[in-house]
Design a protein around this nucleic acid. Sequence first.
DNA 1: GCGACAG
DNA 2: ATCTTGTCGC
Length: 225
Amino acid sequence: MNDRLLHKWDVDLNEARKIQERLSKHLVLEPYTLGKCMVAGIDVSFRKSTQEASAAIAVMSYPQLRIIEISIARMKMTFPYIPGYLAFREAPAILEAWAKLKTKPNLLVFDGQGLAHPRRFGLACHLGVIFDLPAIGCAKSHLYGDFVEPAQEKGAYSHIIDPAKQDKIGAAVRTRNNVSCVYISPGNHMDIESAVRTIFSLTHRYRLPEPIRYAHKYSGKGWEE
DNA sequence: GCGACAG
DNA sequence: ATCTTGTCGC
């Protein structure tokens, strides 16, 4: 964790944008090779009625993909959902769940965008930079950039292009036959091809990679009592 | 002004 | 994301 880059989350939109632009200078895009490690799936669910957020971090061993530890944290949410600023809504709960985690993972998979973002700094980049760990954004829907629909067969993918600079910022990926795409982009210490390759390695029977499936399952399980 | 818009 | 039952399709 790079404590020097921690900042307040209760800010206005102009300040939030400046924080994204400042922290994005710390992004490192580089090849990543998946090997024996601890991989974490991270997801947050909400309760509209109580204005509460529930973050879950599911740590799994790779390549066994067995659950090693689950950390859940609930808290009041303050920041609204604004496309392009998801980190300011979800990060506080994620950081609290992280603090309670015994097993610190060395690869992070987030339920949201990474580089495929208007300012190239989605949720996966923001927390990937703060944790200073390899991170991947794995979103269930598209936010920013142009792409052509990949073939329907598992394994097919096409690059997401930034309409501003015309360069690659991610990929629309078919993880199973005849399912909708997932949108993959680098978070930190990761390049596009490494991110796509890694997501395929973490995906088995379902559309979403295993760490994300478990994180989603447990984030919605923090409401009992 | 119009359409798009992670969770 | 959340609020919700049954229901269409492989």
